[in-house]
């Protein structure tokens, strides 16, 4: 066998690897699946990847795809604006749960309500990872973070925020909403592919939430991370929340 090279997706920028993500982070798994989907759909030349503030911005320069960095939580309005200006372009808004469900929730809800033809990918790791693991809307009940040292009290702080379920109440039947997990990367990949196809065929709003690891702030090893993610999956149910039927005519 001649030179053996890593199995990177074609749209990866090889120079930028190894990435800046921590060992055991779930982000690169989501990005790898996204890269494979971009390859399979052959949309790298007309795509724009919009990154939010937080750990998601470390995906900067990892792709050989046009990339833009937005203010915290403002990725979705930027994506909507891009789509208005360039209806044939493909926009992928890539953000964390803090950006999507806390500071950027209003933008996300409005955009979903308007049924903008954009794709939003939210990586949910139950906390604000980049700033040191503070409590976020998605923090599980009784989960310890740096700002909830005795665990999140769900009686006073509310339940962990169910993103796609909330959006399903206020979107039309055209929207595609799903939740995947990095424990099943290929299933996640199929959701990402459906979401991007949804946008390519201009059918409506598409949204994928990916449950992901944060071993640094969970303070877990590989086995502990997988165990924690399985616990997360008990609350955040994995699957397609809204999948419009496609008539073949």
């Amino acid at each position: 066998m001649s030179e053996v090279l890593p199995s990177f997706p074609k749209c990866y920028k090889e120079k930028s690897w190894p990435s800046l993500f921590c060992p055991g982070c779930g982000h690169p798994i989501v990005l790898k699946m996204l890269g494979q989907v971009i390859d399979e759909l052959a949309i790298a030349h007309k795509s724009l990847l919009a990154l939010d503030i937080g750990c998601s911005l470390l995906a900067w320069d990892l792709f050989d795809v046009d990339t833009i960095q937005t203010h915290h939580g403002r990725t979705v309005p930027l994506a909507a604006g891009f789509k208005l200006a360039k209806p044939n372009g493909i926009i992928i808004a890539y953000m964390g749960d803090g950006g999507a469900y806390a500071i950027g929730l209003q933008s996300l809800l409005t955009s979903a309500h308007r049924d903008d033809k954009i794709t939003v990918i939210v990586v949910n790791n139950t906390l604000y990872a980049m700033t040191g693991g503070q409590y976020a809307p998605t923090t599980l009940c009784d989960e310890r973070t740096t700002t909830t040292p005795e665990g999140r009290n769900c009686q006073t702080a509310g339940i962990p925020f169910p993103g796609p379920e909330t959006l399903s109440a206020m979107t039309t039947k055209n929207a595609y909403l799903a939740r995947g997990s990095v424990l099943q990367p290929l299933v996640l990949k199929s959701y990402l592919k459906k979401a991007l196809q949804h946008q390519i065929e201009n059918r409506g709003f598409s949204f994928v939430e990916a449950l992901s690891f944060c071993p640094l702030n969970w303070k877990t090893d590989a086995a502990g991370s997988i165990k924690f993610l399985e616990k997360m999956q008990n609350y955040f149910k994995v699957g397609e929340i809204k999948c419009p039927k496609i008539s073949k005519s």
Partner: peptide, 16 residues
Amino acid sequence: ARFPYLCKGCGLCIER
């Protein structure tokens, strides 16, 4: 094949 240049030693492969 394993690539030492890329491996960060997270151990996810071992667990999975």
